[in-house]
Design a protein around this nucleic acid. Structure first.
Length: 556
DNA sequence: CTAGGGTTAG
């Protein structure tokens, strides 16, 4: 037995250095079968993990099913394999089998794995049920289980539940502090995250890379630049200046704030930036509209022999689409074909979008028809392309195709459809689809849906209906984008009375938004109220409010 | 057990 173990271990270490992982896994499997080692759950677990690592779930499951003895490690490995491949139903049914079998009790790692599967599958009800099972099993005070619970609740937007779990623990460990801080920041409560960070340090706990990343990725608004810089300073003080993950988070933060000099400074500080840090920097340039720099850095990366991945390609295609640079777009398409990445949903959707935005809608549609694995995202992309080109009837045909193929429309599908109605001026269709979305698909309207809906009604002259609709939302503070949509409708319809009412709501919330003031002044002007125009414009220049000029461009 | 880049908007 001992020699077998040594032989097995040497084969295993060989395997980790080889490129033909899947062939070698089969050899190793054959070896343990010949030596009857598969009867031992230790060896079976190793092979299951190897198969899972190669993406060969069928072989993994086959071995799992044939194993006469199943340790908790073997169960966990198989459940994790399914969960990581996003086969949530298989993971869950295996977990249920485990409970039903009764032979092996789930441990804290089983729960951690299954809880993650629930939040990745957006299954709130399932999560609550498993939370109950955790309590019954007596693992609710286990730190691994608790961290998983806190993460799962926060990722689903249930911070309140996460806090309850967190404060249920008497002595949180570093991971638990980290996940609760990230949980707050992820939910938008960066302030509470910082407060907890202070509390953590008062408890004598030293922050690590995870802690800072959690804090940084919650800083979304550029008014938080000072706080971001402060945290950046703490990172440097704590000696994290060469931390790859942390640097990527910092590059992204500065890119969000549109301060590319600082982003680049963080980047150049790294001795050898890894692929994702490169990707963060390039994406940062794309989002700041500096497409030239984005492409130049991409060539630098390529010159190092690094292959571009779907996420980076999608980002570059956004650059090509926004600058209407069909040449760059087709070059990227060429790269995609050469590297066999056409079947990636993210890549194909951004290609379709790029062709459409560059004015070649038909090429985009052709591409859509040629791909074999059309997901709901592919459909959403094409619907939105049709909508932006004013072809609402085609958009609705695709919606029917979604239903016919048994796909589940999501929030973006309805957003794209409403947008199509808006561009084509289809009031009746718009009212219908807005209702269908809620009644038949139980999707609650989000801000973007309401913005489109207000525009559909308002642009067609139904200003009162749009106004009443906003009131019917019943929220104490309606998102300013929704009032903004109504204001632009007042502008288009020349209704200065309603415009004033709307402006009261808007300027109360966002007094420094120049675009809203300009819209209001346009309404006054079209009504001949030049005195009001003068007051408004003077007020703007006195307060230093600036309206950024709009910009269009086309590559020639 | 926790972490970095993100396609579909106007």
């Amino acid at each position: 037995m001992c020699t077998m173990l040594i032989r097995f271990k040497s084969l295993l270490s060989e395997l980790s250095q080889t490129h033909q992982a899947s062939a070698r896994t089969k050899q190793l499997h054959a070896y343990i079968t010949r030596a009857h080692l598969f009867l031992d759950p230790f060896f079976a677990t190793k092979i299951v993990r190897l198969y899972a690592g190669n993406g060969d779930l069928q072989s993994a499951r086959h071995l799992f099913d044939k194993s006469p003895q199943r340790s908790v490690f073997l169960w966990n490995s198989m459940i994790r394999a399914y969960a990581q491949a996003h086969k949530f139903e298989d993971a869950l049914s295996l977990y249920r089998n485990m409970l039903r079998n009764g032979g092996t009790q789930p441990d804290n790692f089983t729960y951690a794995c299954i809880l993650r599967a629930f939040h990745e599958n957006f299954d709130e009800d399932g999560l609550r049920i498993v939370h109950g099972e955790v309590i019954v099993s007596g693992l609710e005070m286990d730190s691994v289980t608790c961290s998983a619970l806190v993460t799962a609740y926060s990722k689903l937007g249930l911070v309140g539940e996460a806090i309850k779990v967190f404060y249920g623990m008497l002595a949180p460990d570093l991971v638990l502090w980290n996940v609760m801080i990230s949980g707050y920041c992820y939910a938008g409560f960066w302030n509470k995250g910082l407060q907890l960070f202070r509390e953590m340090r008062q408890n004598g706990e030293q922050p690590d890379g995870y802690t800072f990343i959690g804090l940084i990725s919650g800083l979304l608004d550029s008014s938080l630049l000072g706080i971001g810089q402060g945290i950046h300073g703490m990172c440097l003080k704590s000696g994290f200046d060469c931390h790859a993950h942390l640097s990527s988070a910092l590059v992204t933060m500065y890119s969000r704030f549109k301060i590319m000099n600082s982003a680049y400074a963080v980047f150049t500080n790294l001795y050898q930036p890894d692929f994702i840090t490169w990707s963060s920097l390039i994406t940062g340039y794309v989002q700041c509209g500096d497409y030239e720099k984005a492409l130049t850095h991409c060539r630098n990366l390529n010159a190092q022999g690094k292959k571009l991945d779907p996420i980076l390609i999608a980002s570059l295609l956004v650059a090509a689409a926004r600058s209407a640079n069909i040449l760059a777009g087709t070059q990227i398409h060429g790269y995609v074909v050469r590297h066999g990445l056409q079947s990636d949903v993210m890549v194909s959707s951004s290609l379709i979008d790029m062709y459409s935005k560059c004015g070649f809608l038909t090429l985009g549609i052709q591409l859509f028809r040629s791909i074999s694995n059309r997901s709901i995202t592919s459909y959403n992309t094409v619907i939105s392309c049709y909508g932006l080109h004013g072809l609402a009837s085609q958009a609705f045909k695709l919606f029917e195709e979604i239903l016919k193929n048994g796909l589940q429309p999501d929030e973006s599908t309805f957003s794209a459809l409403l947008c199509a109605c808006c561009h084509a001026g289809l009031v009746t269709h718009g009212r219908e689809i807005f209702k269908t979305m809620q009644d038949e698909f139980s999707i609650q309207p989000r801000t973007e849906h309401c913005v489109h809906y207000v525009k559909i009604l308002g642009m067609a002259g139904y200003l009162d209906e749009a106004y009443n609709f906003i009131w019917s939302l019943g929220q104490p503070v309606v998102d300013s984008g929704i009032w903004g949509a109504l204001l632009s409708c007042c502008d288009a319809n020349g209704d200065s009375e309603l415009a004033e009412v709307v402006a009261q709501h808007l300027l109360g919330n966002e007094p420094r938004n120049g675009a809203y003031r300009v819209m209001l002044s346009n309404v006054y002007a079209s009504d001949g109220k030049w005195e009001d125009v003068r007051q408004l414009r003077d007020g703007m220049s006195n307060a230093g409010v600036i309206k950024n000029p709009a910009l269009s461009m086309v590559a020639v």
